[in-house]
Amino acid sequence: MRKAGSPQPRGPRPRSAAAADPPARPERIAKLLARAGAGSRRDIERMIAEGRVARDGVPLATPATLVMNLEGISVDGKPVEAAQAARLFLFHKPAGVLTAARDSSGRPTIYDVLPQGLPRLMPVGRLDLMTEGLLLLTNDGALKRALELPANAVPRTYRVRVRGEVRQADLEQLAMGVELEGVRYGPVDASIDRRASTGSANIWLSMTLTEGKNREIRKLCAAMGLEVSRLIRTSFGPFSLGSLPPRAVHEVPAGEVARLVRHPRLRAGA
């Protein structure tokens, strides 16, 4: 598992899709727009349904529309720039910021604390308000979707500080999968990482899952009678938080991103 260190010097800018070989056959507009960073597939499907995506000024009726490229395509009346090569960044999200573009209540979001000068980036999945640690960011909607897709089973590992009695039988049950309030979770690989200092009721757990349902770890711990006091994501797929400090960003080398994009499982999911 690769560890993130201090940011490395940037290499040459990746060439745009316009400079690359054209696709051999038409592709769905939603897929091309996602690759260009216009949003996730779900975002784009919603925008098309709202009449915000047009070709030569005519709103598109379906995200299944086939096109060879993005020439003449606009979103909200603005031409869509040619897709850039996929880029991926590791970000150490601090606790107390939302994984969102904006918040109606005025709470800070990741975009308020990200360093200046980054390209337009989308988060891969979410970390809730008080969860900290590794958050992947990408300019490529297709890569985002492939990494998030439950069918691709990309593992995420967390360190969890809890209060309460940790029972081995409960941890073994997590490995088999559990159902809470009609929702199926798991399997989750959970183990005791270490106990806190003598006299403390705190225990650190390591938990690895592949689905990432909303507040999954907090709900599973609550069902075991455990109170979560700190939650840190330490890895996502082959990428590790390592020594990356809070609020810092590290760009994954282009060669690693290219290998990831070519991975058979992710390519099928995209």
Rank of each mutant, 00 (worst) to 15 (best):
Leu32Asn: 01
Arg233Phe: 01
Glu256Gln: 14
Arg194Val: 10
His92Lys: 06
Asn139Leu: 02
Phe91Trp: 04
Glu256Cys: 02
Pro9Gln: 02
Arg262Ser: 15
Ser235Met: 03
Ala222Val: 08
Phe239Gly: 05
Arg126Asn: 07
Pro23Thr: 05
Ile73Glu: 06
Arg184Phe: 09
Leu135Met: 13
Gly106Ile: 04
Leu180Glu: 10
Ala190Gly: 04
Arg215Leu: 06
Val178His: 10
Lys78Thr: 14
Asp128Met: 08
Val154Glu: 00
Tyr158Met: 04
Ser16Asn: 04
Ala201Lys: 15
Arg233Met: 01
Ala100Cys: 05
Leu66Ile: 09
Leu135Ala: 10
Leu134Ala: 07
Ala254Val: 11
Arg184Val: 15
Pro155Gln: 00
Leu205Ser: 10
Lys144Pro: 07
His263Ile: 07
Gly39Ala: 07
Ala151His: 12
Asn139Asp: 11
Met47Cys: 06
Arg247Ile: 05
Leu220Lys: 06
Ser74Ala: 15
Ser229Cys: 15
Pro155Tyr: 02
Gly199Leu: 06
Pro264Asn: 05
Arg52Tyr: 07
Pro246Lys: 10
Pro245Glu: 06
Ala248Cys: 09
Glu132Ala: 14
Asn202Lys: 08
Ser235Phe: 00
Ser240Ile: 01
Ala223Asp: 15
Thr109Cys: 13
Glu50Asn: 08
Pro94Ser: 00
Ala190Gln: 03
Trp204Ile: 08
Leu220Pro: 05
Leu244Asp: 01
Asp21Cys: 09
Arg161Gln: 13
Ala100Glu: 13
Gly125Ser: 12
Ala196Lys: 09
Pro115Met: 08
Gly255Asp: 15
Pro94Val: 01
Thr157Asp: 03
Ala38Pro: 00
Asp103Asn: 11
Arg15Tyr: 04
Asn152Asp: 07
Arg102Trp: 13
Pro7Gly: 01
Lys213Gln: 06
Arg194Thr: 12
Arg42Tyr: 00
Ala222Phe: 04
Ala100Lys: 04
Ala169Ile: 13
Ile48Pro: 10
Pro119Asn: 12
Glu211Asn: 08
Pro12Gly: 10
Asp76Phe: 02
Val178Arg: 14
Ala61Asp: 14
Leu205Asp: 10
Arg145Ala: 15
Gln84Lys: 13
Leu32Gly: 00
Leu220Val: 04
Asn139Gly: 02
Arg15Ala: 10
Val124Cys: 08
Ser40Glu: 04
Ser40Cys: 08
Phe89Trp: 15
Cys221Trp: 07
Thr65Trp: 11
Thr109Gly: 12
Thr109Ile: 10
Asp43Gly: 06
Ala64Trp: 05
Glu45Gln: 13
Thr208Gly: 01
Leu143Ser: 01
Pro246His: 08
Gly72His: 14
Gly141Glu: 05
Val160Ser: 01
Phe236Leu: 05
Leu135His: 11
Arg215Cys: 05
Glu179Ala: 14
Gly242Ile: 11
Arg87Gly: 12
Leu114Arg: 10
Ala19Met: 14
Glu81Gln: 14
Gly212Ile: 06
Gly225Glu: 05
Ala248Val: 07
Met122His: 12
Gly96Ile: 07
Asp140Cys: 00
Asn152Gln: 14
Arg156Leu: 02
Ala20Arg: 15
Pro115Trp: 06
Pro108Val: 09
Pro94Ile: 02
Gln8Thr: 12
Ala54Tyr: 01
Leu134Ser: 11
Asn202Arg: 12
Lys93Tyr: 05
Glu227Tyr: 05
Pro253Asn: 06
Arg184Ala: 13
Pro22Asp: 03
Leu88Gly: 01
Arg102Gly: 14
Pro14Arg: 03
